[in-house]
Write a protein that binds this DNA or RNA. Structure first.
Lengths: 399, 399
DNA sequence: TGTTCATGGAGAAACGTATCTCCGTCATCC
DNA sequence: GGATGACGGAGATACGTTTCTCCATGAACA
């Protein structure tokens, strides 16, 4: 008795016991061909005449055959799954909803992954290890890794490609993508100064992630360069109430700022509410800008100028870089991130700005990529012209 | 030469070629025990003295051993993955961000899944089939399935547990959870009437999902019962601009309503903007309520009364029901949804309202569950008392 | 008439785990 | 002093694919 016959015998008895899904063997038997032929026919490989191919496909369809993803993954070493790691604050697992940035970014990432035949698994950065090791990942996207992130290091050591959203501090990654936060903050401060601000305040966070750090540093540097005394309040960004309190504190100071930039999404409404409490008119008494992806700031009274980090473009780029690394890895041993990472996979949102493909080195050998932000100018930051033009016409000349 | 030795021989030569992850065999060899012992030691099974167990664990740790999720899945038939199907509109894959409901619900679902050791895979309902069949799922959560949803039927036919958020129309599911939309709409309309509304309008959608359908029907029924002529505008809810246009149309009608309920999240700002355009004061000239999970409506001018569907509780419940079905399935053949589905897994958000565990039958044999909504009363729907108390003190009497 | 190719397809070996079965070895008990 | 069981652990099989290797057949060719 051959092994195949033995197999089949066992299967038959098993099937009488429970109604099981048809396997490739069942298809082969029903079609009167070998397992190899079925596999080749369904996967478009091998050299088979079209008649055989279509016949096998018909039989498979008739039997309701679905290939076992687990077996395929085991055999090929590819699961078609990529992880999306989100930062977790305390017990609450996600900032997903708190900041529209994450939601948008995750959406774009999911979409980009699906476009290339991958699915996204959402995993918290500090999850118990068992969940992580229970899912077969081809690679991981990490949002804002902390310095020396042990999870990232572990993944990388396992040989998994890791691409981070946010320039990594000290952990090894395959590639990274980030906004040019320094330039963005400088642009905003210049914009506010140009609108007449003399004392620009900052609402910032206490956490040590790259975004907060770079933005705050840029603010402090700008203050130094123009000779303004820094005016800022820092609060734990994950606390929904702390933002409102910090905004209030900032406007309650004796040296009250006449313009404020808020680093986090809810800061716009926080600041608007605080301004109302102190009877400050926006933009007459107080200029306002905040970093947000939320569309509600177009409809507030007054509409608030926002800095968009273009999370969709970032999410798309990150995923495409990751998949490039995953798929490039097999052909050559060293991960060579493809040169056309933006082009093919992002029909949806990469409509503008080809300069986004510029490269900047950020580590020993990893390819980093800085992406531009977009300042959406609305009434809250304009004293004179109420028109909502986007471009700031001033030539660079004051830092 | 035994098969094991053969294995190991091959492995050794392979390892010289490429640096591979250590397998269970390597651990067994390094620890001087058998594969069985390693497996048992790491999984806490079998009868082993603690010394062996700890020794094996040490060796595994030293070798950086990570069990292959694919192999485990293949062997056990469990992947620890559950799918989250999100409705897709046209080409754009997700409504994720558009409606805070989805973001919140997905977040809670992810969290609940992780609490029980599962990970969530986000998949679009109408994805190409290959992505679906490429991932090994233990079960699926479906958000708002359409009638006769082929995808759901297919999953169900495969024997996968399917739990839907939103009472399913005509597709078979293991269980479902939904809000009591009928009661919610009636409550809102009564609330508005009680605040003095004579002609209540509705901003609704053109799609045929359960939420839109039930809500609209409830509105129409209420209109019939109180003898009011229906005043509504329907628009494609997935179009971000169409809502603003529909809101404008509704307020531009000659028979302008003096109160409006908007079924979708952005309707609040849409209606507020439209009211401003027509110089209608809220709440004096126009009472406003919309269904939203967004916190921004607490900070608008005026703050807008919202109906919360409590998406986090729904997401948590749905996932727990699904996992109950998955894990119950193995012990008995018929999926018996556990009786304590809310209790254990939802430490975070099931703080209130134990009545949520009530059951309602909605299909032949599936267990459905109706969950309450919450009306957050703010200034936009109150004419007299500007205090933001939740209870409306006025006695009913002027319908 | 042999040799060479191309064609169509079968066999069997992995992939790495979980688990079922079974086998020694002692100590214990009647 | 032989049966009994607990203890500790090894062997082998199966999970369902993919894919490498190889074999038959017939046609083309020298």
């Amino acid at each position: 008795m051959t092994a195949a016959a033995n197999h089949h015998g066992r299967r038959t008895t098993t099937r009488t016991r429970r109604l099981e899904r048809a396997g490739i063997r069942d298809v082969a038997a029903a079609a009167g061909v070998s397992i190899t032929t079925v596999s080749d026919a369904l996967n478009g490989k091998g050299r088979l005449p079209d008649e055989t191919r279509t016949k096998v496909r018909e039989v498979a369809e008739r039997l309701g055959y679905r290939p076992s993803a687990a077996a395929r993954t085991l055999r090929t070493g590819r699961s078609g799954l990529i992880g999306l790691t989100v930062t977790t604050y305390g017990q609450e697992p996600f900032t997903f909803t708190e900041f529209a940035y994450f939601a948008e970014m995750a959406r774009a990432a999911t979409s980009a992954a699906l476009n290339r035949g991958y699915a996204l698994v959402v995993l918290p950065a500090s999850s118990r290890h068992d969940v992580w090791s229970n899912v077969a990942l081809d690679g991981t996207v990490v949002i804002d890794p902390s310095d020396h992130d042990p999870m990232v290091a572990d993944l990388y050591r396992q040989g998994l490609p890791v691409v981070s959203d946010g320039k990594p501090g000290n952990c090894p990654v395959t590639a990274w993508v980030d906004n040019d936060h320094h330039a963005a903050v400088l642009g905003i401060l210049d914009h506010l100064a140009q609108a007449g601000a003399r004392r620009i305040g900052l609402l910032t966070g206490t956490s040590t992630d790259t975004y907060t750090r770079l933005s705050t540093e840029a603010y402090l540097g700008w203050c130094r360069s123009v000779g303004q005394e820094p005016l800022y309040e820092a609060y734990p960004a994950h606390d929904p109430c702390a933002g409102a309190v910090a905004a209030d504190r900032l406007l309650a100071r004796p040296d009250r700022p006449d313009a404020v930039y808020g680093l986090f999404d809810p800061n716009g409404t926080d600041l608007l509410a605080a301004a109302r409490r102190y009877h400050l008119r926006v933009p007459d008494d107080l200029l306002l800008v905040c970093c947000s992806e939320s569309a509600v700031y177009a409809a507030t009274e007054p509409p608030i100028t926002t800095l968009s980090l273009k999370p969709r473009r970032i999410g798309t780029t990150v995923v495409n870089l990751l998949i490039d690394a995953i798929e490039g890895q097999s052909s050559s041993d060293r991960p060579s991130v493809g040169q056309a990472s933006i082009g093919p996979g992002s029909e949806d949102e990469s409509s503008d700005d080809p300069s986004a493909t510029d490269r900047a080195d950020g580590g020993p050998n990893v390819s980093g990529q800085l992406m531009p932000t977009e300042l959406i100018v609305r009434r809250s930051s304009q004293r004179r012209s109420p028109r909502t033009t986007v471009s700031a016409p001033r030539p660079p000349g004051e830092t």
